[in-house]
Simulated scan of single mutants.
Amino acid sequence: MFKRNWKHIDKIMITAAIVLVLISLCIIGSATHINKGAINYDFVVKQGVAFVVNFLMLLFFCNYDYTRLKRFAKPLYVINLLMLAAVMFFGTSALGAQRWIQIGPLTLQPSEFSKLIMIICLAALLADRGEKFDRWRSLIPVALFVGVPFLLVLKQPDLGTSLVFIAIAAGMLVVSRIKLSILRNIAVMGVLAAPIGWFFLKDYQKSRILVFLDPNADPFGAGYHIIQSKIAIGSGMLFGKGLFQGTQSQLNFLPENHTDFIFSVIGEELGFLGCLFILFLYFVLIYRTLLTAKECKDRFGILLATGILSMWTFEILVNVGMTCGIMPVTGIPLPFMSYGVSALTTNMMALGVVLNVYLRQESTIFL
């Protein structure tokens, strides 16, 4: 079965993802090889081991019939809520947020796994609905379904992941035949409610929005990240300074250079052409996922592919935009690139689900 599936797998999609991970290992190594005054590659080793394990999980998801995931939707939803609730009581704190759970040597971030679980559960919920979403009251079950994990993640606080939930739900509702006027009205209401939401934000979240509007307002505080990121990307020019040669990343001027701001390291060391190549790989990944959703004949499969497509698209746009200074700073990682076992595991499993949807279609998808 594996040989037969591998013959018909979307090799373009899986190649794009693998190349992204391999490049990320090089960039993570460049950004972190000088740690506490000594040369080591601990981050690369951890991410590399996670990739090997996750690749085996990807193969499992490729061979596991995705339609069976539907029957596990309710238990998964309960597990998701329990994981997110556990963070409130047993989670560890870092950088002003309580988002992680320590299990032996592993530090896991449940909100990352929550994204894929939410896609599976919401796809199962929407697949069973035959009617169109043409009234406000028809959205109440969906709002409650997404709202509970949304609030649990927001409590951590993790505004970035909460916004990913909204992007996922919006994308899946569009293909669920929601009346576009309702979607438009929701967007308008969100914009009008934004000033009220300001009073519920944490101080550091307010600072991020203010420095997004004017980074120089606090150049040595909240605006430091984005200023250093723009310097790093701009200094790379066309061809970059070369791997392991970036000054902003190598001299630790650029904070979080292996996680949230890894794209800045790419811009500095690989230059504009390197950034274009990374964005091209993301385009291939998104395009093939879109084709998979378009050609799928099963409603549940369409929703799964659309949810994953929405998650990846939103995360790429926000993370890249953040490093370039056209989006506020958030904790959203760059898919397949940013360091993090939880994020990489979630994305590899999501890739396995999309490849499985592709494999089980009667017709072959071509460029």
Score class of each variant (00 low, 15 high):
1 M>Q: 15
3 K>M: 11
8 H>G: 14
11 K>L: 10
12 I>S: 12
15 T>A: 14
17 A>C: 11
33 H>Y: 09
35 N>T: 15
36 K>L: 12
37 G>R: 10
37 G>E: 07
49 V>F: 13
55 F>A: 14
55 F>H: 05
56 L>K: 03
57 M>D: 03
75 P>F: 07
80 N>L: 13
81 L>M: 13
87 V>I: 01
93 S>A: 15
96 G>H: 06
96 G>W: 09
96 G>V: 04
98 Q>E: 15
99 R>S: 13
100 W>E: 00
101 I>N: 04
104 G>T: 05
107 T>F: 09
107 T>D: 05
108 L>T: 08
109 Q>P: 06
117 I>D: 03
118 M>P: 01
124 A>R: 01
125 L>V: 10
128 D>F: 08
129 R>Y: 06
132 K>L: 10
142 V>M: 04
146 V>P: 01
147 G>E: 02
149 P>K: 07
151 L>Y: 08
154 L>K: 05
160 G>R: 02
160 G>P: 10
161 T>D: 05
164 V>I: 12
169 A>K: 03
169 A>D: 00
170 A>S: 02
172 M>R: 07
173 L>K: 00
179 K>W: 09
179 K>L: 14
182 I>M: 05
183 L>F: 12
184 R>C: 15
187 A>K: 05
191 V>G: 13
196 I>W: 08
203 D>V: 11
210 L>I: 11
212 F>I: 06
216 N>V: 15
219 P>T: 09
220 F>N: 14
228 Q>L: 03
232 A>R: 00
232 A>I: 00
234 G>R: 03
234 G>L: 08
235 S>C: 14
238 L>E: 12
241 K>E: 10
245 Q>P: 02
245 Q>T: 07
251 L>Y: 07
251 L>M: 15
252 N>T: 13
254 L>D: 05
256 E>T: 00
257 N>V: 01
258 H>G: 03
264 S>I: 04
272 F>K: 07
278 I>N: 09
284 V>N: 01
286 I>G: 08
288 R>M: 04
293 A>Y: 12
298 D>P: 11
306 T>A: 14
310 S>D: 01
311 M>A: 12
311 M>T: 11
312 W>Y: 09
314 F>I: 01
314 F>P: 00
319 N>L: 03
327 M>W: 08
332 I>P: 03
335 P>G: 03
341 V>I: 15
341 V>T: 10
342 S>F: 00
343 A>F: 02
345 T>M: 13
345 T>V: 12
348 M>G: 00
349 M>S: 11
350 A>D: 04
353 V>S: 06
357 V>Q: 01
360 R>V: 03
361 Q>E: 01
365 I>K: 09
